[in-house]
Amino acid sequence: MSNIIEVTNITKSFKDGDRVTEVLKGVSFSVPKGQFVAIMGRSGAGKSTFLYQLGLLDHPTSGELMLDGVDILKLKSEERTRFRLERLGYVFQDYALLPDLTAIENVVLPLLMQNVPDDIAYEKSKQALMRVGLEKRMYSLSNKLSGGEQQRVSIARSIAHDPKILFADEPTANLDSESSENVISIFKELHKQGQTIVMVTHEADYGKITDRTVLLADGVIIEDTINAHS
């Protein structure tokens, strides 16, 4: 299997006045296409920061990052945005939906930004909402949906454009157990269909459903385990 993610010696520092805090201290990591990876670690270990670098929401201080065969750090800002828009999907812990838009309007937004024609964009959005079981709530305002439903809308938005890699940042952290199971079953189904998924989580149990568990501590990978069931 070829690697769809290749990270070499990535660092990320934040400046606060004269003080420099190094959150990622040279992380190297690769993910083959189709793999479901869980990134775990304590709070402050650098999990979310690492995911932001992979998901191109942030820019590493140094290192190399290849996604889907493209040397990301050589791209200009607008090219990176376009790459993220077209090839990556991102599921946020707090759903990150626009509250005044309906479920389908939230899902269609990234497609419209890609200049996908309206009719195709709405058709793809409907399909995505059906895949997460929300075909009956697609015209509800997102702030009228339950937490679990909102997270499913967020997943539908992240998969509507058939991304090469799906990133999820603690997608079940705000959900009750039933909704969590629901969301995880969607990820399992997506994985079964060949989707590459990188998910940050606190839940040790998710090691049972992912192919691999990477443990981060203090900005470095301290453990990288291929799970027995995979």
């Binding site: 929401l57 607008e78 945005t81 828009l85 990150a96 939906l97 937004l109 990234p110």
Partner: peptide, 15 residues
Amino acid sequence: REIGLRKAVGATTKN
């Protein structure tokens, strides 16, 4: 937050 969200889902600076 809305701006961040739009950017996170792919809005460019120009958008």
